[in-house]
Design a protein around this nucleic acid. Sequence first.
DNA 1: CTGGTCATGTGGTCACTACCAGTTACATTA
DNA 2: TAATGTAACTGGTAGTGACCACATGACCAG
Lengths: 245, 245
Amino acid sequence: MSRTIDPFGAVPKYYQLAAILRQKIEDGDWKPRTPIPSERQLEVLYNISRTTIREAIDNLVQQGYLYREHGRGTFVSPHKLQKGLMELTSFSEDLVKRGIQPGQVIRRLERMVPSPKILQRLELPAGSSVLCIDRIRLGNGIPIGLQTSYLALHDDQVITESEMSEYGSLYRILQEKFNIIPTEADETLEVTLATPQEAQLLEITPGAPLLLSERLLFSQYRKPIEFVKILYRGDRYRYFVHLKR
Amino acid sequence: MSRTIDPFGAVPKYYQLAAILRQKIEDGDWKPRTPIPSERQLEVLYNISRTTIREAIDNLVQQGYLYREHGRGTFVSPHKLQKGLMELTSFSEDLVKRGIQPGQVIRRLERMVPSPKILQRLELPAGSSVLCIDRIRLGNGIPIGLQTSYLALHDDQVITESEMSEYGSLYRILQEKFNIIPTEADETLEVTLATPQEAQLLEITPGAPLLLSERLLFSQYRKPIEFVKILYRGDRYRYFVHLKR
DNA sequence: CTGGTCATGTGGTCACTACCAGTTACATTA
DNA sequence: TAATGTAACTGGTAGTGACCACATGACCAG
């Protein structure tokens, strides 16, 4: 890992500096609750202007690595293993973080015209077609959720079943193939009971309690990209979220 | 509402500007998806340096009011009624937003020594006492949740039952009386079934599905402040969250 | 011992300047 | 006509310099 700033590289200096500081925190060079060098000290240490220093620190504060105290200093956050948890995550990222091996069975992958309610949430005109992906989600080989995604993609934006396994994550495909960056999402969670059909797919008894999630995903330009409905087995899944002011 | 910048006031200029811009968005003066004036134009319009302009815009982008497109401009986010939803909210704020009249029955309010597991999560030494508040939460007069809070407060930081109703919100008491600002929280949600006792308090049948939330709340200095457990009636409550990258 | 003052260190705010990097419209050229 | 360049926008990055607001500890007067 580079420990110095490259003034000619394509990556911005504040970004390079943020990476260096983040590394120090993750490596444990800087302990929780202890102050990092002051902004004036960093200015000298890395030969970078305070403007840039502050931009780097702003980023890390935003991401929860550091916190400031006016008049006292900037300190390392004491959160232990939670780095990255505040992030908007995909299902697979989500599981990997908990040490569970994600898996999936794709039951359907095709273009279709969804219900008007779904089209409305995706802000598409009536009669539009979307890409629909129907999957059984597995954790360590055991079914834990039924997921149905409706993606607001054009006819020429194709996703194949083989790409789904290559990329590993739908969000990676969106980002790397279509330059769509998931940025925000609205999600609701509620309790529901398994229908016989759902129970069979999830290998549970009908009427067993499920966690129902409905999520609307927005791109970097605040356009709705995906509407996804997930039914989680109530006995095998716990939803986690990190909230911020 | 003031539409100009006061250069001598105690409030920072970037904050005043952000308030003005936010107002224009909320009033509908600037429509969704349309560009706001460029940073150079705002510089002239308000006689403020671009540094300050950008700081104000940064804030609003962070809060979801605006989004930038490099080379094109800065645009108003198209989100309709969702302003503020990304915020870390208290139970009562939460309900008010949905147009439901919040209410509560305080069943217990006392200092106690909680279980070691809870003390550990609050990062307090074994044997410490905390303030425990046990409440039934109402929506439009109907029970929708059982809430038990454990607050990491000192013996001299007292909260009375009358203050609970005066302030309306526990978070307001923390903020205004003790200068503790809820900044982050980790929350898990899972499904569980009502015990006979819980069923009675919630006025449902035993065995009915419930939504169980466990939340650990952190102050502005990343110290754990509150551990709270809430049991929601599965048939009357839907959890909402706004996620961000 | 108590309370005030002050120097010094911290982050917070602001202005001015310069240049880089995408986007767009339009004139130019093949 | 179609491709191409180019000028004039946009936001993005970076440096410099100044002053304010808050926290702390050393010092001093009572």
